[in-house]
Amino acid sequence: MTDLPLFPVDDADLARLRTRLADDAAASGVLDVAYRTVDSPIGPLLVAATQKGLVRVAFGLEDFDAVLTALAQRVSPRVLESRPRLDAVATELDEYFSGRRQGFDLPLDFAMSSGFRQEVQRYLPHIGYGQTRSYKQVAESIGNPKAVRAVGTACATNPLPVVVPCHRVLRSDGGLGGYLGGLEAKSALLELETTSGA
């Protein structure tokens, strides 16, 4: 048996190969979920989209492999990294974090939630930039004033944090409550909006 020579592949070559694979998969109709990671002031974010729109934003403290596995199980097993397909998402997030964007214009896919949770998550973008509401106020706004805990659960399981602004929902006493990305991230987002919106 003869040893074949190994040819080093640099990062640029790997990036081109990944892009070509993603392009070929998309052209062949076999790419259902595209993803990439983006840097942000609150740490790396994994963003994923279907043909319908942005389906997942995950924080660095979440296990990205577990997030991708959940997408494969709940949306489609045809998941592939594709940076160009998520360029618009990366651009809007960058604009938001630099204080140049107060609302997102991205199509959204709520496939990772359903029922009451999805109803709450669809309501959250109606809370204006730099504003907050209590869990109770959100429950009242969607016509279910006794569902305060359920609103909290819907916020805690929001598959599209930052873009669908669950960070704008606080406890009635003004406390932060919980946040999937951690309380430090929630505080940072609220501070960003307070200082940028002034």
Results as ranks from 00 to 15, higher is better:
S98V: 04
K52H: 09
V38C: 02
T157I: 02
D11Q: 12
R56S: 15
A34T: 14
L108V: 01
L160G: 13
V57N: 04
E140F: 09
V162N: 01
R20C: 04
Y123I: 02
T153P: 08
D3M: 14
A150F: 12
A49P: 09
P159G: 08
F104V: 02
R36D: 12
T37G: 07
V162C: 00
L21C: 13
C155S: 08
S28G: 13
R56W: 03
R171G: 14
A150E: 12
Y123H: 10
A88M: 09
G128T: 04
Y123L: 05
G103R: 14
D24F: 07
L124E: 04
V120L: 00
S40G: 01
A12V: 09
S40M: 02
G178S: 13
S40P: 05
H167N: 13
T69A: 13
K52W: 06
V151E: 03
V38P: 00
Q102I: 03
G174S: 14
T194P: 04
V79M: 06
R18S: 01
H167W: 14
N144H: 13
T19R: 15
G197A: 12
G99Q: 03
S113V: 05
D11C: 02
M112T: 00
V120D: 01
N144G: 02
S196M: 10
V89E: 07
R16S: 08
L17Q: 13
G175A: 15
A111D: 08
Q121C: 02
V120G: 01
L176N: 06
A88V: 15
T195D: 01
V120H: 03
R168Y: 13
G53W: 14
R85V: 09
P8C: 02
P125M: 00
G128A: 14
P8S: 13
A70P: 07
A88E: 12
V67S: 10
D10I: 11
P8M: 02
D24P: 04
L108S: 04
F110H: 03
A27K: 12
R18Y: 02
L106S: 12
A154H: 07
K52T: 15
A12F: 07
K146Y: 12
S141W: 03
